[in-house]
């Protein structure tokens, strides 16, 4: 890795400068992660008095546990649903805004502010709108003959948390799509127009393929967001229910470890989540290396 050609001499100063960051990292990141690895190999007795080494038993137990497998598939549905909904809405809006000349900035301002809303608050907002007793949406759905109730129907609950999580993320995707669109050379689009390609054809044969790097990057970011940053959406609304229909992996780590006090199982889940983050980070950085060389 590079430094400057010329550097400062100094034997202790660089360590002192790195000190605060390294100390915080060691105490609050590396040590707990090590603890999670270690605890994932132990099992405590029923009273929490002693623990013994059980090897990979916590992991094999997890993968034969119906509720964990359920949580895996819930997370997959939630992540894919959130990513698809949020990215397609953002792409539609970005392409449309990009046509505008005078009103572009005004629309952009109106569309980006939900980025500032905390996931938990986004959850509460949609929870309120969809409230079966007083919410406005169930009232409208009732008129077309659908009885909405996210307290009893797992499908309704999943739809609710997907909408809340996707709503908050539209702003982010929108900004990146807009930046991607603006980096596409106008001459390509003009050439296609002269050859008689309609706007729809131009979008699918020129714009969309050239956006692929942005789309791929956003896909990874959105999956990470849906898996790890949406704890607030779940905790403030469905709390994993009804009947575990929205019990995502991160929520389950919290519920099993903090509420259920099952440390070994919770630590094993933490380790699996770490592996998932490492893989996703790797994918993201590999891809960014490639994008730089484009």
């Amino acid at each position: 890795m590079q430094t400057k050609r010329m550097t400062f001499p100094g034997r202790w100063l660089p360590y002192a400068l790195l000190g605060p960051q390294v100390i915080v990292t060691l105490i609050f990141f590396i040590w707990p992660a090590g603890q999670a690895l270690y605890q994932s190999l132990l099992r405590e007795d029923a009273f929490g008095l002693s623990s013994n080494f059980v090897g990979l038993a916590n992991f094999t137990r997890l993968f034969s546990d119906g509720s964990y497998l359920n949580s895996l598939s819930v997370t997959a549905v939630f992540a894919i649903g959130t990513t698809l909904l949020s990215m397609s809405a953002a792409l539609l809006l970005a392409v449309t805004v990009n046509r505008m000349l005078r009103s572009r900035n005004a629309y952009t301002t109106l569309l980006v502010w939900p980025y500032a809303i905390a996931p938990a608050i986004a959850g509460v907002l949609w929870w309120f709108i969809f409230n079966p007793a007083i919410g406005i949406v169930p009232y409208a759905l009732e008129m077309v003959g659908y009885r909405w109730n996210h307290r009893t129907s797992g499908g309704d609950a999943m739809l609710l948390v997907v909408i809340a999580a996707a709503w908050k993320q539209i702003a982010y995707n929108f900004l990146f799509f807009l930046a991607g669109l603006q980096s596409i050379p106008q001459s390509l689009i003009e050439a296609a127009a002269i050859d008689g390609a309609s706007p729809t054809k131009r979008f699918w044969t020129i714009v969309f393929p050239l956006l692929t790097p942005t789309t791929f990057f956003l896909m990874v970011v959105n999956i990470v967001y849906a898996m790890f940053d949406t704890f607030g959406v779940i905790h403030a609304t469905t709390q994993g229910g009804p009947a575990q229909a929205t019990n995502t992996l991160v929520y389950k780590v919290y519920a099993d470890g903090f509420v259920g006090l099952n440390l070994g199982a919770s630590a094993a889940q933490s380790v699996i989540l770490m592996v998932i983050v490492v893989v996703l980070t790797f994918v993201q950085f590999r891809f960014i290396e490639r994008r730089v060389n484009y």
Partner: peptide
């Protein structure tokens, strides 16, 4: 380089994946 990677690793360890042990610390 070691310190650089040590800092880099924090990207892969969000609070969400190590809830209980961080709480204990």
């Amino acid at each position: 380089l070691f310190f650089f990677w040590l800092i880099f690793i924090t990207l892969m360890l969000p609070v969400e994946v190590r809830i209980i042990p961080t709480f204990q610390v």
